[in-house]
Design a protein around this nucleic acid. Structure first.
Lengths: 120, 120
DNA sequence: CGAACCTTGACACAACCGTGGTAAGGTTGC
DNA sequence: GCAACCTTACCACGGTTGTGTCAAGGTTCG
């Protein structure tokens, strides 16, 4: 029995069974199913559910926001459009050149490398 | 008079004056002010407001979601935590090592470079 | 100066989100 | 086989979001 049912998973993760189904509907975590269709939560799912709970509490965000974050990382068009909008400074109206967000990603990565170097 | 008042800006951007103030309150676009406190919209702001309108319509997202996107790009802690959560696969429960999201950023950048190379 | 604009703040309201409950029916396991 | 669990699908309901309007007062500019 290395897999818990939804009520058991609810007890050990702090979510309600209702919310576990809701989280699945939002697309954040799909539990595997038994032959009969029961959701089965393994160690990985439990861990993920607990950290999700922490995450939402620590930063005061909601499931909708996490769903949007997921859209941002799976939909490259959306991601590019959003990044382009934020990168466009209102000071320079002749901005927003096509595919400019790729250059932004590159610059951001350089900043990340610098941060990583300081961490070692 | 290269700056429009809020009602004029509203007409040329498709937003209502009410919404222009709301957008400002959400933190997405602050218009500069006159000495007396009037909001003044220049060409840059107008452009930005129009592209924001397109963006929300094209991808069916709301101002709250854009606000969250802004948090994601300004709050590195939040960004790291969210990325780490999505990176953790439920298959490997021994995952989520500290600062793992930096490696993910690196890998993502490599994918982006490959994509950029194909675009030239 | 005075008309026409702007400011913030409040009340309002439909739509959606997070969350609970309940009903009708299928699954599990002793 | 049957008690105890699960499934999906609804109704409900308080809180937030997006949006309008109105009031009381300050600003702009011909």
């Amino acid at each position: 029995m290395d897999a818990l049912t939804i009520h058991e998973a609810a007890e050990t993760t702090g979510w309600s069974p209702r919310m576990l189904r809701y989280i699945e509907r939002v697309g954040l975590l799909d539990a595997p199913r038994s032959d009969g269709g029961y959701r089965l939560y393994g160690a990985g799912e439990l861990q993920r559910l607990r950290t999700l709970r922490e995450l939402l509490g620590d930063f005061d965000i909601g499931l909708g926001e996490m769903g949007f974050a997921q859209r941002l990382r799976t939909d490259a068009d959306l991601r590019g459009a959003v990044d382009a909008w934020f990168e466009a400074e209102p000071e320079r109206p002749e901005d927003v050149p096509e595919r400019d967000w790729l250059r932004f990603e590159q610059q951001k990565h350089e900043r990340l490398l610098a941060a990583a170097a300081q961490l070692t």
